[in-house]
Design a protein around this nucleic acid. Structure first.
Length: 639
RNA sequence: GCCAAUGUAGCUCAGCUGGUAGAGCAGCUGAUUUGUAAUCAGCUGGUCGGGGGUUCGAAUCCCUCCAUUGGCUCCA
């Protein structure tokens, strides 16, 4: 007998070799029906695999993250089976579960798969699912595995098997389908009741753009049709929050083919929003000891040769600007740091000046690949809320911590409470992508890791995500559709000070090299606002809203009174306009609601007589009348 | 940059297998003067993304460029 410990702590004896599914059945038939996989001593496995020794067991269902991912991984196999049925000879790459469903990378040979084909693939999947075929695990030798896929002529699988260790290779079968797979899988295909292909895309084999491009098919499945319907509805809702759509509807920003792709143009309301955000941070930075500076949008090519940007990005950037003077070349600045290094170096510096914190909302230009452009979140011209802190080595930790505090303060103020803090380190396998000595890198990485550890901030560490001159702490936030974007960033840099030969005179009267911290709490105004729009669904915090209210006169007769009220509010720094169109009040309300104006102030005979406004809150409705004075008082309390 | 798709009036979209464009909203004009999510009527508005080609004839078919969308790769 073996002892099985369940999540509630209870221990039950079972015969040796009992499967998780059998255990589930012994608890309840209903539970067994819902079991998708099992976590045995922390390892996710097929529910029907026998358990041979004492174990901690957790039965996984649709409600568990691992249950879902097992379900989707099995669905990827089901899709592959359907694809083999429809496209004989199709070759298969890999087919994992992802956050929202699964994909399979396939090579359909000469034929093309487009979204027009989705329906028939979905139908085939459901047809196969209804057969209720069991997912069967089989251990195979490397030789047999190779033989099987040689017979199929699938070079992708052969490459994968080639890298596997003999004795640790498993196949999974369901119906007529066999795949190289370490599993685990759900018990059988009948659990898959709803299937939808979401997208088709090109994807490089093994993520390498120099290799074959496969066709990636994204899909999602559910144990109930209703859940698929709900999921699709949720996606529709999310699309309504898309900042590109809201930006157009609310007239925040635009793009113009004539101006150029990826070059956002801020319309009056967007500009108002943005400058309010900028002022908020500028003010905060003054309190925290930053000094504003201003630098030009271009700089001589030599500046970027010195910084290393030219070598790293020169050929993929906007190309140099030439002048009437032979050989003279300027670059649009891709970063502000080289200019700021020049500011540090323009006069002898004393240790007494450090830390020197210079800040600039600096607009930079990067020639992003055309396929990368995306609304405001990936653009070719954008403004960083940039600052560079030059400090002594023993000030690094303190400065880093204060920047971290500022960044978290900013995110909190804007209502971002779910973000991922990512420590982005150098790729240990390819140091050629980076400048500077190992020693400098180690110091910089250690500084970040230690400082972060001190704050207890929860982080994930990702090697290979560092900037070419230094490691970073990045703040990642998701957009409405779940895509992750880097907003704020803090970077510790021992390398640029070297390249610019920056020095300060220490207390010992000797020259020393400063350490530089690059930081941008918003990241870029464009991306931050893009994500902010989605985050608040266009309903900005009152202090940021381009228009905080609109006054809606019941009829033209009350326009004069409305204008009076507007003037009074303006003297209290409460901003808004009068909707003096000859429209019905219903119409004016509707338009203001659609424009997501936080407050509608309705004025008619009743209000004009007593100096009041009827207050209506966007999305909520009538709040009743207040005198203008009462409204001002009340409104200020909301800020 | 790569794969796939899309591009028709300011916006959202219709226009079947080729026979030289249509709706709603917006805009303009007029009427209406409205009490909490669209008042009514009339009118204007498009070299069908740009260029090239096939054809008697192209929004529709082909090529190419541009832009956009979803991924991949990239992201200082």
């Amino acid at each position: 007998m073996i002892n099985i410990t369940l999540p509630d702590g209870s221990v039950r004896p079972y015969p040796k070799g009992t499967s998780a599914m059998e255990i589930a059945r012994s608890i309840s038939e209903g539970l067994a029906r819902n079991v998708l996989a099992a976590k045995v001593n922390g390892e996710v496995r097929d529910a029907n695999r026998p358990i041979h020794s004492d174990a901690k067991l957790q039965l996984l269902t649709w409600n568990d993250k691992e249950g879902k991912s097992t379900f989707w991984h099995s669905s990827a196999h089901l899709m592959a089976e359907a694809l083999e049925a429809i496209y004989p000879g199709i070759k298969l790459g890999i087919g994992p579960a992802v956050d929202n469903g699964f994909y399979y990378d396939v090579d359909p040979g000469g034929t093309q798969i487009s979204s027009d084909d989705f329906k028939k693939i979905e139908d085939k999947m459901l047809e196969l699912a209804r057969q209720g075929n069991a997912y069967k695990r089989q251990e195979v030798s490397k030789a047999d595995a190779l033989k099987y896929f040689q017979g199929k002529g699938d070079e992708y699988k052969l490459e994968l098997i080639d890298e596997l260790e003999d004795g640790k290779i498993t196949f999974y079968h369901q119906g007529n389908f066999t795949d190289l797979c370490k599993g685990p899988h759900i018990p059988d295909t009948a659990k898959i009741k709803a299937a939808k292909l979401m997208a088709v895309a090109g994807a490089y084999w093994r993520g390498d753009e120099k290799r074959q491009q496969l066709t990636r098919l994204y899909g999602i499945t559910f144990p109930k049709q209703k859940e698929l319907t709900e999921y699709l509805e949720m996606l529709e809702e999310a699309k309504k929050r898309d900042h590109r759509k809201l930006g157009q509807e609310l007239e925040l920003f635009m793009f113009s083919e004539k101006v150029g792709a990826g070059l956002p143009i801020w319309l009056p309301k967007g500009a108002a929003l943005r400058s309010r955000l900028e002022n908020f941070l500028k003010q905060e930075q003054i309190l925290r000891g930053y000094t504003p500076v201003i630098t030009p949008h271009i700089g001589k090519k030599e500046l970027y040769v010195t910084s290393g940007h030219y070598e790293k990005y020169g050929k993929d950037s906007f190309q140099p600007i030439h002048t009437p003077r032979e050989g003279e070349e300027f670059l649009l600045k891709p970063m502000n740091c080289p200019h700021h290094c020049e500011i540090f170096g323009h006069k002898p510096r004393s240790y007494k000046e450090l830390p020197l914190r210079i800040a600039e909302f600096g607009t930079v230009y990067r020639y992003e690949q055309s396929g990368e452009l995306h609304g405001l979140t990936r653009v070719r011209g954008f403004t960083q809320d940039d600052a560079h802190l030059f400090c002594t080595p023993d000030q690094v930790k303190g400065e880093f911590l204060s920047v971290l505090d500022l960044t978290r303060f900013v995110l909190k103020k804007l209502g971002f409470d779910s973000y991922t803090a990512q420590i982005s380190l150098r790729d240990p396998n390819d140091k050629s992508k980076y400048i500077g000595s190992d020693e400098n890198w180690e110091k910089a990485e250690r500084a970040i890791i230690e400082a972060v550890a001190e704050t207890g901030l929860e982080t994930v560490t990702v090697p290979g995500e560092a900037a070419f001159y230094g490691p970073k702490l990045d703040f990642m936030v998701k957009d409405a559709l779940g895509r992750s974007w880097q907003l704020g960033t803090i970077q510790v840099d021992y390398n640029l000070p070297d390249r610019f030969e920056l020095e300060y005179i220490g207390a010992d009267n000797q020259p020393h090299r400063p350490v530089m911290i690059h930081r941008a709490p918003f990241g870029s105004m464009e991306r931050f606002i893009g994500v902010l729009i989605e985050h608040c669904n266009g309903k900005f915090p009152l202090w940021l809203a381009p228009e905080q209210y609109t006054i809606l006169p019941i009829s033209d007769k009350f326009n004069d009174y409305a204008n009076e009220v507007q003037k009074k509010l303006a003297t209290h720094d409460i901003r808004g306009i009068v909707d003096d169109r000859s429209e019905s009040i219903g119409r004016k309300i509707r338009d203001a609601e659609m424009n997501k104006i936080p407050y509608m102030l309705i004025v008619g005979e009743k209000e004009a007589e007593v100096g009041a406004v009827g207050v209506r809150k966007q999305g909520e409705g009538d709040l009743g009348a207040k005198t203008v004075e009462e409204f001002v008082e009340w409104f200020k309390g909301l800020l």
